[in-house]
């Protein structure tokens, strides 16, 4: 149970970062932390105590493998996370060039 609670705390830390921080880079870090907590949660779903890696061989029986599907899922999620984080960073750098600041209070040309 404790790992799940820690995972929830990590998720909330990320959410707190997104909501309270004023710096673009810190918002991106908050998103990254949330993403890791979700990935951690997914990998914990498939975990079996004392299980082995799901690689086919004669030594281990199938019932002792950990669930490989969540692992495939988080690998995909990590790839997607890489793309979104890179895109967010590129946007942040472009915004810095236009506004001269990472502060979201100064980036406010859209209103209404």
């Amino acid at each position: 149970m404790i790992p799940f609670i820690l995972c929830l705390i990590l998720f909330l830390i990320g959410l707190y970062g997104i909501i309270t921080q004023k710096n673009l880079i810190k918002i991106i870090l908050g998103l990254a932390i949330m993403e890791y907590s979700v990935n951690l949660f997914l990998i914990m779903i498939g975990y079996i105590d004392g299980g082995t890696a799901p690689i086919f061989s004669e030594k281990f029986h199938i019932s002792s493998y950990v669930d490989p599907l969540p692992q495939a899922m988080i690998l995909t999620a990590i790839v997607i996370g890489l793309a979104t984080t890179a895109l967010l960073l590129a946007m942040a750098i472009r915004l810095y060039r236009k506004y001269g600041s990472f502060d979201i209070r100064k980036i406010n040309s859209l209103k209404g």
């Binding site: 993403e35 997607i80 915004l95 040309s109 859209l110």
Partner: peptide, 19 residues
Amino acid sequence: KHQLEASFKYQVLGCLASL
């Protein structure tokens, strides 16, 4: 300017939704 800002906002909320 405004396109980048709108896109950043869209991305942050979009990523949150995806999570």
